[in-house]
Design a binder for these strands. Structure first.
Lengths: 131, 131
DNA sequence: CTGAATCCTTGCTGATACTG
DNA sequence: CAGTATCAGCAAGGATTCAG
């Protein structure tokens, strides 16, 4: 992005260093599983590891652990270990995490609203490619 | 950034089939480069291939081609080939793409606003890990 | 139950070369 | 200029196993 933003209410990132930082954060946070976990934690509140594993359909245990660590590191979730047998670990959103989840809200709405348009666009594209 | 999304206008995903579809679309669209290209195309309008290559800092030519194809297939961008020498190909957002870009807007704002909080959270996390 | 460690497969990425 | 094609290196991700 070399040019300044024009007619938008985007925060003016005059500093290219800030610009790069934001882009990096976006890259880190605009991840499929991060988005889904934010959504699950927002809808159901505090969740255990195994609950998240079931809720985020299709995620592997490894990915879940890894994604949760990243989110914890970025200050999006808080990890609570309960000393018990069997062990129990809860994850809940921080206010930072809630803010991000809220920001993603619009994307979910958009996706839900436009699923059919995307599907037909794909069908049209693939049909054109056939020839 | 305060309350669970209960008080939001999320479409209630009663049908798990729809839920799965939406999740799939999110997974497809919640991609670093897709987000960045949407942003670039929103800010600067119609762009040529080479302009996008420069604007999306760090992307490889291969990834750019690939991402643009996916976006075209999903109906997010329109690809226009101008018969000229030298050849010229322009990409511009469809209204669907503009809608998605608009939906992502909140995430950009959030990221810009919270970069420093994330950075300090990371620092704290890494410091704690040292021990 | 949580999650770390291992192996192994897939796929991105970068570089390069080649068309229209 | 805007791609496609190919190859090599590397990292992401899945499945499995082991440990606290």
């Amino acid at each position: 992005m070399q040019k300044p933003a024009i007619d938008h209410d985007y925060p003016e990132n005059l500093d290219p260093r800030v610009e790069a930082l934001v882009t990096q954060v976006i890259g880190r946070v605009a991840d499929k599983w991060t988005m889904i976990l934010l959504e699950v934690l927002t809808e159901h509140g505090e969740q255990r590891f195994s609950q998240l594993l079931r809720a985020a359909d299709g995620i592997s245990q490894k990915m879940l652990t890894q994604t949760l660590r990243q989110m914890e590191r970025d200050g999006l979730v808080i990890r609570t270990v309960h000393a018990a047998v069997p062990p129990r670990v809860d994850y809940r959103l921080t206010d930072l995490g809630e803010g991000l989840s809220y920001a993603f809200c619009g994307v979910w709405v958009w996706a839900a609203k436009n699923v059919d348009r995307i599907e037909s666009a794909r069908a049209a594209f693939d049909a054109a490619r056939e020839r």
